[in-house]
Computed example of a mutant assay.
Amino acid sequence: MTCSKVYYTDFHHGVEDNFIEKFERFLRKAGIEELDYDRKFTAIKIHFGEYGNMVYLRPGYARTVASIVKEHGGMPFAVDCNTLYAGRRKNALEHLDTAAINGFNPLSLGCNVIIGDGLKGDDDVEIPIDGEFVKNAKIGRAIADADIIITINHFKCHEMAGIGGALKNLAMGCASRRGKMEQHANGKVQVEQDKCIGCKKCTKMCAAEAISVEDKKASVDESKCTGCGLCIASCHYDAIDAVYGSLDEMCKKMAEYAKASILGKPSFHINIIADVSSSCDCRPNCQQPIVPNVGILASFDPVALDVASSDFVNEQIVIPGSKADKEGPDDIFTRTNPGTNWKVATEHAEKIGMGVSKYELIKI
Results as ranks from 00 to 15, higher is better:
S246K: 11
Q287F: 15
I273P: 00
N285C: 14
S278Q: 13
L247M: 12
H269E: 06
K253T: 06
K253S: 02
G245H: 09
N285L: 12
C251F: 05
C282K: 03
F268E: 09
L263G: 05
S261D: 01
D281R: 02
K253N: 07
P289W: 02
P266L: 04
I290G: 00
V294C: 04
S279N: 13
C280E: 07
I272D: 03
C286H: 12
A258I: 04
C282G: 06
F268Q: 04
N271F: 02
H269W: 00
P284M: 06
D281L: 05
G245D: 15
I272V: 15
A255I: 05
C251K: 12
I272Y: 05
V276F: 02
F268S: 03
A260P: 06
Q288A: 08
P289K: 03
C286L: 15
A260H: 02
N271K: 12
I272Q: 00
E249T: 15
D281S: 11
Q288Y: 11
I290A: 00
K265W: 08
A274H: 03
V276H: 00
C286A: 15
K252I: 08
P266F: 06
K259D: 06
L263H: 00
Y257L: 03
S261C: 03
A255F: 03
S261H: 00
L247Q: 08
E249K: 14
Q288I: 08
M254E: 09
A258F: 01
R283Y: 12
L263F: 06
R283H: 13
P292V: 04
P266G: 10
C280P: 06
S246I: 02
D248Q: 14
I272T: 07
S267T: 13
G264N: 06
I262H: 01
D281M: 09
M250L: 11
P266S: 11
S261L: 00
F268H: 06
